[in-house]
């Protein structure tokens, strides 16, 4: 009986040492999943999510304090990618997303004030003072940061036009 008690106790102590050592030496620093999410995100640090940049949002999503749907420029595609990565179920229908949008300048309204160009996180708006501005379609991430800065409402979000190069054959309807 004594032998049984002793052996179990010693076994427990030895296993405890092993676990303690394992914990010391096999610790994983940082959270690799955050880096993976950052890779998925638009990366413009536009701040619409309310977190300090895309890294902040990724950390918040992993921690569970922010919903996967918090990134408007990422749209539906980003939400489903995040959901797949984290194994979440997200109600996509609630997300009023009708495809990616970009900012466009209504040339007759633009007064060339340069305010929009100053806030654009990707320098996608081009134009000097007193000149009509233009948006680089390829550089705009659709973050909408410029929209409220425009004094004349010359900037509007419009869906990205579908071209032959960007067209994708629709998925067949499910049988």
């Amino acid at each position: 009986m004594i032998a049984a008690i002793l052996s179990l106790t010693v076994l427990g102590a030895i296993l405890g040492i092993a676990l303690g050592i394992a914990n010391k030496f096999l610790k994983v620093e940082g959270n690799p999943i955050v880096d993976e999410l950052v890779d998925l995100m638009p990366g413009s640090n536009c701040g619409q999510c309310g977190y300090p940049g895309c890294v902040g949002a990724a950390e918040a999503i992993v921690a569970g304090t922010a919903p996967a749907t918090c990134c408007p420029p990422g749209g539906k595609a980003l939400v489903s990618a995040i959901a797949a990565k984290l194994g979440l179920t997200v109600d996509l229908s609630a997300l009023g997303d009708d495809g990616p949008k970009i900012a466009t300048v209504a040339e007759e309204l633009c007064i060339g004030c340069c305010r929009c160009a100053r806030v654009c996180p990707t320098d996608a708006i081009l134009g000097g003072p007193k000149q009509i501005h233009n948006v680089f379609r390829e550089a705009c991430t659709g973050c909408e940061a410029c929209i409220e800065k425009c004094p004349t409402e010359a900037l509007v979000m419009k869906p990205v036009p579908v071209t032959l190069q960007h067209w994708v054959m629709p998925k067949p309807r499910l049988a």
Partner: peptide, 11 residues
């Protein structure tokens, strides 16, 4: 996305 990140970084 990569281009955007580069742009944001450059800015």
């Amino acid at each position: 996305n990569d281009a955007t990140k580069k742009l944001a970084q450059q800015r």
